[in-house]
């Protein structure tokens, strides 16, 4: 059985938010909830990178460890899913998750968060596969239809990859090798220019001028 994984290639992601939109549309996610988000570091500075994150379907999932009602389960494909009929919307999974994946329909007063919602790797939920209930609560079950998550399928630059961990790892390894080769071809100097960290002095200066 394949173990499903996401991978986002920071060298390719162009922060177009196509994955965010694709997910929202495909799964008809509740208002105010985004199962996936693109985070940009050093926006507008040298060394800017973007990454698309959602649930990473951890092998040893922290969310499942802290859930007071134990409503998570891992499918044969390694996808971490949860049961909304059992979830009490306490928010503990959001505190424990490394990637801030769990989302709540409302974050209003009186801890009235509503049921937790998160990326399902387009694998639906515990309801009957393909049923209307499954779609309403968890979104599309594309995996059951033999398709991969739409966010990755839609990614224009193929920065976001989803699928069997081994295949993904191979693709990424290939990319790294190619990149290393190209940087060798252009000489070490180029790598220095491109990747050198912003000098400490300059960094403090830019931060100071911002404030």
């Amino acid at each position: 059985m394949a173990r499903m994984k996401f991978y986002c290639d920071a060298e390719r992601c162009i922060e177009c938010n196509g994955c965010v939109t694709a997910c929202k549309n495909e799964n008809e996610v509740p208002w105010g909830v985004n199962r996936r988000r693109v985070v940009t570091i050093k926006d507008g500075e040298r060394g800017e990178r973007s990454l698309s994150v959602a649930c990473m379907h951890c092998s040893d999932a922290p969310c499942a460890a802290v859930c007071p009602v134990d409503c998570f389960y891992t499918t044969k494909e390694g996808v971490v899913l949860h049961d909304k009929d059992i979830c009490i919307g306490c928010g503990y999974c959001f505190y424990a998750c490394p990637f801030g994946a769990p989302q709540f329909p409302e974050d209003g007063a009186f801890a009235s968060r509503g049921k937790m919602d998160k990326c399902t790797f387009c694998a639906g939920g515990p309801e009957e596969t393909g049923s209307a209930d499954e779609f309403r609560k968890y979104g599309r079950n594309r995996l059951a239809e033999g398709k991969l998550p739409l966010c990755a399928e839609m990614c224009a630059t193929k920065a976001l990859l989803a699928g069997d961990a081994n295949v993904i790892a191979d693709i990424y390894r290939q990319r790294v090798v190619n990149r290393a080769a190209s940087s060798l071809a252009h000489g070490v100097e180029l790598q220095r220019q491109k990747f050198r960290a912003t000098p400490e002095r300059e960094r403090t200066r830019t931060r100071g001028s911002e404030g």
Binding site: V20, N34, I41, L51
Partner: peptide, 24 residues
């Protein structure tokens, strides 16, 4: 370094939640 995102939400600009494992 400042991180930004288009998605509004609690801590949505944080990529890795350093406290998560401690909490668990």
């Amino acid at each position: 370094a400042p991180a930004t995102t288009q998605v509004q939400g609690r801590d949505s600009q944080v990529l890795v939640n350093e406290w998560g494992e401690h909490f668990r």
